[in-house]
């Protein structure tokens, strides 16, 4: 960079020097000399632009290689980092979906066991209270004793199953570790890509400066990404509590709707 700056300085001092000489030769009426100086200025600029463009082309090439966004076909079977990241994120989606389904399977499997315990406890309780109030015949009591025995043995078996299911639900959360690692790597890649793109932008601005190109400033509203229709939706809001235009919870939604007469 330092070398680059000194070259730019050389070019600028040549420019200043020649400009001064140009003015003085024009003032003294020496037009031949003036034309010669203009020609020299032109050559100096051309030479500088060629040298800079050559250098920038090399840097641009290096930056693109760094980004690894070229098609996988060119370098055999190896995936570019971007398509690798895409694959990794799809893996996260798969893992989280699998874990959610596994958890729901186990919950659905456990629900009937809990229902049985709840239903049968209620029913036995009623009969047990009748027995305690001595409102039960001996035959009825023998029937109740049998039901209690069934209930106890099934209770043992079901509680075993329930604790297994709870453990499996716990284990189904192991995706968090794996998906966390994947997401961290993708985040790192995005940061690298961002800084490489920034370098590219700086290079492009240098080319503009040497070639004397000017751009109309683009206001953020004009970029197509911002013109997204609100009906498309935006997905979850990450910093809801720090934003005025976003609700942070259901109470906020209810307040807003009731203020609208809901």
């Amino acid at each position: 960079m330092a070398k680059n700056d000194s070259e730019t300085g050389d070019f600028e001092s040549t420019l200043k020097q020649h400009a001064r000489e140009l003015v003085s030769s024009l003032e003294s009426g020496n037009f031949g000399e003036a034309v010669h100086l203009i020609h020299q200025l032109d050559q100096a600029r051309d030479l500088h632009v060629y040298r800079e463009v050559g250098k920038l082309t090399r840097e641009l090439h290096n930056a693109i290689v760094g980004l690894q966004i070229d098609s996988p076909g060119e370098h055999g079977k190896e995936l570019s980092q971007i398509s690798d990241a895409t694959d990794r994120l799809s893996y996260v989606v798969q893992m989280t979906e699998k874990a959610a389904n596994r958890t729901m399977d186990l919950v659905e499997e456990s629900a009937p066991l809990v229902n049985y315990i709840s239903y049968e406890s209620q029913s036995l309780m009623v009969d047990w209270q009748r027995f305690m109030r001595r409102e039960m015949s001996a035959d009825e009591f023998r029937e109740l004793a049998k039901r209690i025995e069934t209930y106890l043995s099934r209770g043992l078996q079901d509680s075993d199953q329930l604790s297994k299911n709870l453990n499996e639900i716990l284990l189904a959360q192991d995706f968090q570790d794996l998906t966390g690692q994947v997401i961290k790597r993708v985040t790192q890649l995005i940061t690298t890509v961002e800084s490489d793109l920034l370098k590219l932008m700086l290079m492009a601005s240098k080319v503009d400066r040497y070639a004397g190109i000017r751009h109309e400033p683009v206001t953020p509203e004009e970029t197509p990404a911002k013109q997204k229709k609100s009906s498309q939706g935006e997905g979850p809001q990450i910093h809801a509590d720090k934003r005025e235009d976003v609700v942070s919870n259901q109470d906020d939604v209810d307040d807003l709707l009731s203020s609208l007469g809901f």
Binding site: S230, Q237, Q250, L256, F262
Partner: peptide, 26 residues
């Protein structure tokens, strides 16, 4: 039942005639 949580969106849904609005996670 949605993750969309912008005030403008909730108002938009109300104007479109929604009967209830629940934000995720719920």
């Amino acid at each position: 039942v949605t993750a969309e949580a912008k005030r403008d969106q909730i108002i938009e849904a109300a104007q479109a005639g929604v009967n209830g609005y629940v934000v995720k996670p719920f």
